[in-house]
Simulated assay, not measured.
Amino acid sequence: MARLEGRTALVTGAGAGIGRSVAERFAREDARVIIADRDADAAASVAASIGERARAVVVDISDESSVEAAFTEAAADGWSPDVVVANAGVQLFGQDAKAADLDLDVWRRTIDINLTGTFLTVKHAVRAMLASDGGSIILTGSPTGLTGEGQDFTAYSASKAGIHGLTRTVAAAYARDGIRVNTVVPAYTETGLVSTISDDPESRAAIVSRIPVGRAGTPADVEGIMVFLASSDADFATGALFAVDGGMTSL
């Protein structure tokens, strides 16, 4: 039996990168999948490629009315999710910087999308799950929120550290309601989000040299742990950070 048979998942940022890879894997594990992304064309394309087990919804995670509408529409159509992956985010290369050099508008934009957007996704996921039989919420973290890896990305690092803290707080608050909350911490993963690094051989080599297994991560590297956390195999796992980083945070 597929591990996610009978489940419905909503994945934010599923139009590309890690979000798309996870959504496609969930569908292969027999989950129904809501492809949530602010890019309508990308969301529709991914949903179409998956087929009848997927549907697309346009969501701006920094706008609560947009997030709330997505969950309300899903419930009205019988697609209320019991798995939510809060994955959408930004990393503003060329704008994020060391603290003394960081523009306030860049800080605010990053926090609004990465941290506030994740909070809003979690908030409405919890509300949906309280109305049913609980579920699993999975957040996407980063080594930058755990170590000094993101010293040149103050806003991004702070937003991810906030996500790690949010995981523990919400997990503790709703554990007795059958709602599990965990964070997956990938290493440097090559997607369109980090093309500034991947397209620069020197920068890429520098960051890969800090990953003990000796290579960059791929979206596919994250799929397995996401499936585990979404499944009943992880029923006793909540409030935890799961590093899938090639040993990067072990240094």
Rank of each mutant, 00 (worst) to 15 (best):
L120P: 01
A42K: 15
G135W: 08
T116R: 13
S231T: 02
V84P: 03
G135M: 08
V184L: 05
A74F: 10
T144C: 14
L166A: 06
S132T: 11
S198M: 07
V46T: 05
G89S: 11
G17L: 09
S66A: 10
D60L: 03
E73I: 01
A88P: 06
L102E: 02
L102N: 09
K123V: 02
G239M: 09
A88V: 12
T238R: 03
A14Q: 04
D235Q: 07
M129H: 09
S49C: 03
G148I: 10
G145H: 06
K160A: 03
Q91W: 13
V208A: 06
T72R: 15
T118W: 07
L10C: 07
A40M: 10
A240P: 00
S195P: 07
G148Q: 14
I61M: 14
G134A: 06
W79D: 02
G145W: 05
D37S: 08
A97H: 14
A172S: 09
E73Y: 06
A172H: 06
G78E: 02
G239Q: 02
Y174E: 01
T140H: 05
A161R: 05
T183G: 00
L146D: 10
L115C: 11
M248Q: 12
T144Y: 04
A100D: 08
S62L: 05
G89Y: 07
M226H: 15
L241N: 04
E73L: 03
S231P: 01
T8C: 12
G15K: 07
F242G: 00
I163S: 01
I34N: 01
I197Q: 04
V46P: 10
R32T: 13
P186R: 01
A161I: 11
R38Y: 02
D105Q: 15
L251I: 14
A56K: 11
D39I: 05
E24K: 07
G17E: 12
A161F: 00
V181P: 00
A44T: 11
A125N: 10
V122H: 12
T12C: 07
V83W: 12
S65E: 14
V222K: 02
D41W: 00
A100Q: 13
D235M: 02
R28Y: 04
A56S: 12
G165R: 01
D41F: 00
R176T: 15
S21D: 13
V194K: 02
N87F: 09
A131C: 03
R210K: 14
I113C: 07
T191L: 11
G141Q: 06
D60W: 00
T191V: 12
S45C: 09
G51C: 10
R20I: 05
R210S: 07
L193Q: 11
R3H: 08
R127P: 00
E73G: 08
V46H: 05
M129I: 05
D77N: 15
R108V: 09
D245S: 01
V126C: 06
A158Q: 08
A40Y: 04
I34Q: 04
A56L: 04
S65I: 08
R127N: 05
T167Y: 01
A70S: 12
N114V: 13
T183E: 00
L193D: 06
K123G: 04
G239R: 01
I50C: 04
E5H: 13
D200T: 08
S159D: 08
V126K: 08
A206F: 09
L104K: 15
A216C: 11
E64T: 06
A27K: 02
A128S: 14
I34M: 10
R215Q: 11
T72A: 15
A48T: 10
A187P: 15
T191M: 11
